[in-house]
Nucleic acid binder design. Structure first.
Lengths: 158, 158
DNA sequence: AATTGATCGTCACAAACGCAACCAAATACG
DNA sequence: CGTATTTGGTTGCGTTTGTGACGATCAATT
């Protein structure tokens, strides 16, 4: 085993996370002046359909106050609307407006292509290894691997 | 589809980084009351030998003001000393004191073992995949996770 | 020698962060 | 029922962060 900090897992993850994030932040920042929490909530909403703030927080793995402020910001842009859930009047059901959806669509394409251009430089075997390794680590850390594409399993929870 | 990695890579890395970081932060926080930037600068210094603040920032992937404040904090503890570089009097050469080195040594062991205990819960194949995937991604991002002593390049930052 | 432009590190200031306290609605419990 | 506890979401406030400007220094050009 080497002593170099370079193989220290937390350190490497932190660096990678920042580097990857720095690759894509300019896109949503320049295109719409969004910050990271806002972009993440927007994406969570686009992914989940409609959901409550708590669900958006869970899905985007962000602190509830961050989500609260991001929701307010997105609402001010009229990118989402909130209606109180008739079944539980504490919670609010968040839904993207047409403008919000359009903004998401305008962003997801360049974002995806930037990310793709990154990933596509990887050797296919390396990419596969990455997927496997990340998934394993998520499992080890009990990070619900949060079914990515679309389907919300939360339909039952209300 | 292979899009899914690209779609969620930033998100997954960010989550993982936060989760892993949360696993180890209590250690350096409880043992010495360090915060993250301070710990990272300490580690960078221990890893690099002596270096300038800019090099420490590059190595630890942190904003220069963060590093500036961390250096000040570590200096106040007498864990490092700074001397102006005679060759370039704008920059300061940072070096750990004996106390700083001792603090690092007292921390790195429990930190490493915590990180190890995390990794060791992984299936060996998964762990190997993780290492391979991370290395490939680092290479793709030009984050040369490379060697000690002769730090020269890093020409690309900023 | 003087000008220009880039770089090192710091500081003031504004924005972002997250804890804790909070309100309001729902639920649990006696 | 009445009361205590829990949960969804917001806000106040101290702390941390990053931006932009700055003085100082170096290198290149003239």
């Amino acid at each position: 085993m080497s002593d170099s900090l370079a193989d220290f897992l937390p350190y490497r993850l932190s660096r990678l996370s920042e580097a990857v994030s720095a690759e894509i932040r300019p896109i949503y920042k320049a295109m719409h002046g969004l910050n990271r929490p806002e972009w993440r909530v927007l994406a969570a909403l686009a992914d989940l359909g409609s959901c409550t703030a708590t669900e958006a927080a869970a899905h985007s793995a962000q602190h509830k106050t961050k989500v609260s402020r991001a929701v307010y910001a997105l609402e001010s842009r009229r990118w989402l609307k909130r209606e109180t859930d008739p079944r539980d009047r504490r919670s609010e059901i968040l839904t993207l407006t047409a403008a919000g959806r359009a903004a998401y669509d305008s962003l997801i394409t360049p974002l995806r292509s930037r990310a793709m251009s990154l990933v596509s430089t990887l050797d296919p075997g390396d990419a596969e290894a990455l997927v496997r390794g990340l998934a394993a680590l998520e499992a080890a850390l009990d990070l619900a691997a949060e079914a990515p594409a679309g389907v919300t399993d939360r339909a039952t929870s209300r």
